[in-house]
């Protein structure tokens, strides 16, 4: 019972901390979550984190909230999901409630924008670090299909502006086709 309570508390504090530092929105939360839940706490494994990212991206609503729900569900069922939703929405709620009273001064404040600029540089470095680790994981396994999919997906999204939902559907389909072909060969 106490273990459970401690786990919920940890879940709340971790999602709270992550949310308070998720600048730039969307996928930025994935590297932060990976660092905490995969590397530090080991509550979730690496592949699972990517699966959760895929589900969070393809569901309606904010990616950060969706990812928190998934991580919370995995670590504590439905109560876990509720706790991590709270942890994720409380920081922006407080910050925006406070700022909304003097937002024009905030928007134009030089010191605020300097700190924000700096933090954005930090976020960019965090993502670069994560992407290299994850891409290296794929390359290291020396399997052609995942490697090609990584490269082609990147080109499609970055240079050809392919819709993300279409990319996810295609990638899932290719994964499935690759598997059925492999199975037929085995027979």
């Amino acid at each position: 019972m106490r273990d459970k309570a401690r786990r919920y508390l940890k879940l709340f504090l971790t999602t709270f901390e992550i949310s308070a530092f998720t600048f730039g929105g969307g996928f930025v939360i994935i590297p932060l979550m990976r660092k905490k839940f995969v590397e530090e706490m080991k509550w979730i494994d690496d592949d699972e984190m990517l699966d959760l990212a895929a589900i969070a991206q393809s569901s309606p609503g904010a990616i950060a909230v969706n990812a928190s729900i998934l991580v919370g569900y995995k670590t504590g069922g439905v109560p876990g999901a509720l706790i991590s939703i709270l942890g994720t929405i409380i920081p922006p709620f407080i910050i925006i409630s406070v700022i909304s009273h003097f937002y024009i001064a905030f928007r134009n404040n030089r010191y605020v924008s300097l700190v924000m600029e700096g933090m954005l540089i930090g976020v960019a470095a965090v993502i670069a670090d994560l992407v290299i680790s994850m891409a290296w994981d794929v390359i290291r396994k020396k399997r052609l299909t995942p490697f090609l999919m990584l490269v082609v997906s990147f080109i499609l999204v970055e240079f050809l502006d392919l819709n993300i939902i279409i990319l996810i559907l295609l990638a899932g389909l290719i994964g499935y086709v690759d598997y059925t072909i492999g199975k037929r060969r085995m027979r």
């Binding site: 996928f27 994560l130 999919m149 997906s153 999204v157």
Partner: peptide
């Protein structure tokens, strides 16, 4: 098998989001 297909695509998506953030 479907999830295996998704993983490299998600890494590519994170990379692409990272590049726009890097530019900003």
């Amino acid at each position: 098998s479907v999830l295996k297909g998704l993983r490299p695509a998600i890494i590519a998506l994170i990379a692409s989001a990272g590049i726009s953030l890097f530019k900003t």
